[in-house]
């Protein structure tokens, strides 16, 4: 994938199966968002392909993509209609129930807390009941309590068979929640494996995951 002269992603390839929680981790400018955008069908790669069509991938952007003048229920209904979900009303009810937003359904999104906005954002990504869910830094704007609730919800989705691919800056989330880690730097895939194997690859089996990450990048010539 290229942006003019700059190569944003180079030779990155991976596959994931149902129930996996795949973390894409890397420093700023590594290509995490670009990779997720390609997976969600927002950007077309200069070369290569994605096996799943965009309709099969639920997309949760980093910034909540919601209309602040509409209520949570109205946002969900709008995207359910646009996604041509068979029973839009039922899908809205299901997502309000799953995300615990029933009591806030009629409130304008602009008046909701950051955590609740992110829940609506995730709910929209799940409206069409997609087999793959792509989340771009889903917990970056949340407080610890909101973060824990969000991850509880996402783990529940993975347990139910959804393949979840997420990007993050917070390497502790990789260690805690991911079943697999993809480490990107300057558009290159440097590592693909479990978090435990990553610690081993960094030579810090008993160490801190963040130290291991920094040392791994340094070892590969990235600072």
């Amino acid at each position: 994938m290229r942006y003019g002269e700059r190569e944003a992603l180079c030779g990155v390839s991976f596959d994931a199966v149902a129930g996996e929680l795949v973390a894409i981790v890397g420093p700023n400018g590594a290509g995490k968002t670009t990779l997720l955008s390609i997976l969600a069908g927002i950007q077309r790669p200069s070369a290569g392909s994605v096996d799943r069509v965009p309709r099969e991938v639920g997309w949760v952007p980093q910034q909540p993509a919601l209309y602040s003048k509409l209520s949570a229920a109205e946002n969900l209904e709008l995207f359910a209609r646009l996604e041509k979900v068979a029973d839009a009303g039922q899908a809205v009810e299901r997502m309000l129930e799953q995300t615990g937003l029933r009591e806030r359904a009629a409130e304008q999104v602009g008046l909701l807390s950051g955590g609740n906005r992110q829940r609506v954002n995730v709910a929209i990504g799940l409206l069409a009941d997609p087999p793959v869910l792509a989340l771009d830094e889903p917990s970056s704007a949340l407080d610890p309590g909101q973060r824990a609730r969000l991850w509880g919800f996402i783990r529940g989705l993975a347990a139910a068979g959804t393949c979840v691919v997420f990007s993050t800056h917070d390497v502790s989330e990789v260690q805690r929640y991911a079943t697999r880690a993809l480490v990107l730097a300057d558009g290159e895939l440097l590592f693909d494996g479990s978090p435990e194997s990553f610690l081993a690859a960094a030579g810090e089996e008993d160490g801190d995951f963040e130290d291991a990450f920094v040392s791994f990048l340094n070892g590969h010539g990235h600072r």
Binding site: S37, A40, G41, I42, P54, R55, W59, P61, Q63, P64, A65, L66, Y67, S68, F79, L82, E83, I124
Partner: peptide, 13 residues
């Protein structure tokens, strides 16, 4: 501004 453009243009509209 509402970051909805990307969501809409991935095949919805």
């Amino acid at each position: 501004e509402e970051h909805a453009l990307a969501r809409l243009l991935r095949g919805l509209v």
